[in-house]
Design a protein around this nucleic acid. Structure first.
Lengths: 340, 340
DNA sequence: TTGAAAGCGATACCAA
DNA sequence: TTGGTATCGCTTTCAA
């Protein structure tokens, strides 16, 4: 028991192994009676088709690789994974996860050894600044390569990215449109060649401010603080040290905005009464705590990437291989018109 | 190209396929020179050992199943997954994820069809109240079954669980020890047979209160609110509707405690000045927002479960198949002695 | 509708 | 140290 193979089932059902195989994967080619018999016997013997054998025979692996920066535990990565999974699992694919492809060492390791070579049917690269040489290496796997939030389409068969710069520009314009004058952008340092979206967001903020300078009298600044677990407190301190407290705060992400608004209240600065604050992501607690923010939907991006990969694996040609989605302004309770 | 197989490599390297195979998986059985030659040729031809073929030949699948309640995107599930992955990936196993094994329909579906039968080398069941009959079905897969936070060890080859009841009892005792008198436990309804840990935590709270009643003059109550996206606001409303505001709030999880403390402040109730509040989990923001809480470490539980599964797959016998870990009190800034 | 048999790509035993 | 070969479990063509 627990050892029944296709021959055992065939024998017990009084048919050939071909018929057993067909009963599972080509039911329409087997008479209803035979099929019922086979499936009943199979269930009794705890038999099931072996995915390894099917894979070997078919030449496919039924596996896709997901490469990501950092850990899957970040909000963004988890959502991407879940989105991918939502389409890949039903299609019969497992996701082979490669985390922490970020340090120089890990990257060299991965891209030169290519452990996934000949062992995945597609590769999805999630949100990191992969360099052209690395893409080049990836192509040697000879399977579709799909990117999510990658800095350049070059070398990718498909991609779906959010326009971080435009998203942050919209966020900033919203604050300016509300009449705010003193706008601060607290921001943790970006790691070079890694946090493409952090840089893009900062650019969006700066651009919006520069564009508005002609028409509005605004005083804006980027407040860069060191990376690390203390980045919120660093930003808080920097904010409180300002000669004049801002009337609007534009945050690179909700993880900055949420603790900031909570802590600022303890110092007497209450939003939206005293200042407006806007986040980016629409991540956990943004809703409950009523944070106005720019929504991005990494789950949807993961799912779209999966659908594209699925099509490519079937040899289809995509109508729109490369897609850009926009962040959406979600108005909630932390923004209000300026009332000097 | 991209189509080189083991024969091509063998030919190009002037050796047999046996030698190519050994160069990859039994390097010590091949002369250094031959091996170097083979590997060089293989790299050039973009060749790599096929996991499907290896799996077929070896009889193993190099795949484990992870069954979970709800979605992988919850904090707990993500951490468990990451912990599992941290041990499984290096060992060469993929994780085949089955989410949402929660509704009656999905459960019946999964446990009667057993899609993983003969296709995984182990099963990990994460944190849900699987019933004995379902475990019975699972056993038909004839592979090790490891549980994480399962209600009963019965039928499991190994498990690692947190003692929710004892954890919440400790949390409550801490509040009582601080001298608090009016203690409220806001709690969202548990789904029967699903949220084992919610029930256990409530029991822990009740037990601690009952045990203390002799020695202390305490007024405690469980405030049950409906499940759903509004559960925090429901709890907030119920709290504010109380004749007298409590001096201590004991929460079933951080996701209750965090928004609650933020919102209560807007109503003039500030912690720890006016009341103490304690969470459970030590999930994101607990640290940054300085929440006193009971820490559980689902990453570690996932990893431990993986290690146990790995041992079991190798046929080893575990010294301590079933393990219980305790939640740890993490003292931060939201608790203070009662000062009526 | 069903059966026989070749073959997918590696592994490991047995020989050399 | 290396090579030949049977074998893992299934799919699929071809024949019956």
């Amino acid at each position: 028991m627990g050892k029944a193979d296709i021959h055992d089932v065939a024998k017990a059902a009084g048919v050939s192994i071909s018929t057993v195989s067909r009963a599972f994967t080509r039911p329409e080619l087997v008479s209803a009676k035979t099929r019922a018999k086979v499936l009943a016997v199979a269930d009794q013997l705890d038999f099931n088709i072996s995915r390894s054998a099917t894979a070997l025979k078919s030449g496919r692996t039924n596996r896709v690789a997901l490469l990501m920066n950092e850990s899957i535990t970040s909000w963004f990565n988890t959502q991407v994974f879940a989105g991918l999974e939502s389409a890949m699992h039903p299609a019969g694919y497992d996701i082979s996860l490669f985390q922490h492809i970020d340090t120089a060492e890990n990257r060299r390791d991965f891209f030169t050894n290519l452990p996934i070579r000949r062992n995945v049917d597609a590769v999805v690269v999630a949100s990191f600044a992969i360099d052209p040489h690395e893409v080049e290496q990836l192509r040697r796997i000879h399977v579709p390569i799909v990117g999510i939030n990658i800095p350049s389409d070059e070398g990718f068969d498909a991609s779906v990215s959010i326009d971080d710069e435009e998203g942050m520009r919209k966020a900033t314009q919203h604050l300016i449109g509300l009449g705010h004058h003193r706008i601060v952008y607290p921001c943790s340092e970006a790691v070079k060649n890694l946090d493409a979206s952090i840089d893009a967001r900062t650019r969006g903020f700066v651009r919006a401010c520069e564009e508005a300078e002609d028409r509005h009298d605004i005083d804006w600044r980027v407040l860069t603080v060191p990376r690390g677990p203390e980045f919120v407190d660093s930003a808080l301190a920097a904010l409180l040290a300002l000669d004049e407290f801002p009337d609007a705060i534009c945050c690179q992400m909700d993880m900055m905005a949420i603790p900031l608004m909570v802590k600022l209240e303890r110092y007497g600065h209450r939003t939206p009464r005293d200042y407006s604050i806007i986040g980016f992501d629409d991540s956990p607690y943004a809703d409950t705590l009523n944070l106005t923010t720019m929504r991005q939907d990494p789950y949807a991006m993961g799912r779209k990437a999966a659908l594209k990969a699925l099509d490519l694996m079937q040899g289809k040609t995509l109508e729109t291989p490369h897609e850009t989605v926009e962040a959406q302004l979600v108005l909630r309770g932390t923004d209000a018109p300026y009332h000097g």
